[in-house]
Write a protein that binds this DNA or RNA. Structure first.
Lengths: 228, 228
DNA sequence: AACGCATTGTACCATTCGGTTCAAAATCCC
DNA sequence: GGGATTTTGAACCGAATGGTACAATGCGTT
């Protein structure tokens, strides 16, 4: 919060370096603010995050936060929107090719697991939002309108599996998705308390790889039609 | 925050009713504060909870909070300790009788699922603590010393299942517990966002019962030795 | 019946926090 | 190249917040 900003912001008048930094770069400024705010809200929760501190870690000033996002709540909603569109975008591009249903389901699960692990900030924001009963999520039209494509992908895989006779019938896609989410989410969300209480490491590459395959196995076994 | 406290606290001098309320009742006062604080921290997170508001909802005053718990952090740690000893106490008394391993595992899972559902405040406190990277949990000797008896119970059931040839070998108890926790936790923790995004109800008795049996089924299928 | 300690209430304080004022500077567009 | 508009910064503000000073009251003990 000291050196990163201040007097010499590297895009001032005299040296005249319009190369990278335009002096007016609204999108860049907004993006910058959102990135910093994402980290702060994820790290300290909604109330714990301080607008002043977010501003300090930004290349711009507090004034700009209020200029672009109106107030703290507006900023948080924007952060949430960004975070949610992140996964949705990736989910949409998820291509399971023509894998056999069980393999496709396994891959989809592992993908979810990996995504959550790679994006702890997203996971934490979801936690924060849940503490607040999803009130911000409710307020955002943009999030409401993001259609959840995982469900479709998952549905297709499941149907294929049932048709092939490898999956048992009667499972609802949403329930299946909930299982996948729950197992993936927990590993990131409850890492701190769980690992402290049970004195284990949940972040090492080995633990992650191991857990990842367990989660996938759990999901597949849940839908697989029992042999015999 | 209005009528519940104020002038007539029902235990004042003149009417002299020593029946219930002793004027000096440290334990009662502490308990009262902890109850209120639990609700507040669970509802609004650590930073979002206000000491003044907790005090206002108490039968006593802010002064007492600082007198007994030193500061806001001390209060939160005490709240966490209470919450954790809650489950531990129940876990300890969990008796699975001589149920066949699969049934015992199912019951243990359902028990965990039910407990979390019956104690959303506990779940939320764990979320809050995770947002803060478990720093308070680390500080509490009392929590550190609470031994986690579920693991022993689970271990016993699992071993019995392997011995009986109904469970496959090679599963670590801790991993199994993580699966049970994850599936139970999610339903309470992410209720708000999940139900809003997928437009479903996760609190009705039917959904809960349905989900409960799915979770148990998921766990059992994970450990059960595949027929054939 | 009075001492001393645990317990409680009131009023208050310093700081922090979200948010704003006011005006300057840079840019765009003609 | 100049005026309207957008973008930015520093200082400032009132309310809220965590925490305390101080005094007082009740209680068990002797």
């Amino acid at each position: 919060m000291t050196a990163a900003q201040g007097s010499g912001r590297g895009r001032t008048k005299s040296t005249g370096a319009p190369a990278t930094g335009r002096t007016h770069d609204p999108e860049g400024v907004k993006r910058n603010i959102l990135e910093v705010a994402t980290r702060e809200f994820a790290a300290k929760g909604y109330s714990g995050a301080r607008v002043d501190e977010i501003a300090a870690k930004t290349a711009t000033s507090k004034r700009m936060i209020y200029y672009y996002f109106r107030d703290k709540e507006g900023l948080f909603v924007a952060v949430l929107e960004e975070a949610y569109s992140g996964i949705r975008r990736i989910e949409r591009d998820l291509d399971l090719g023509d894998l056999p249903p069980a393999d496709a389901l396994r891959r989809l699960t592992e993908f979810t697991f990996d995504y959550q692990n790679a994006h702890p900030d997203f996971v934490r924001l979801v936690m924060v939002e849940n503490i607040h009963d999803g009130e911000h999520l409710e307020r955002s039209e943009r999030i409401q309108s993001l259609n959840v494509s995982v469900i479709d992908v998952l549905e297709a895989v499941y149907r294929r599996g049932v048709a092939d006779g490898v999956f048992r019938a009667g499972i609802e896609t949403l329930d299946l998705h909930m299982t996948i989410s729950a197992l993936s989410f927990f590993n990131v969300a409850n890492r701190a308390t769980f690992s402290k209480i049970f004195k284990c490491d949940m972040r090492s590459d080995e633990s992650l790889a191991k857990r990842r395959s367990q989660v996938a196995e759990t999901v597949v076994r849940y839908v697989r039609k029992a042999a015999l």
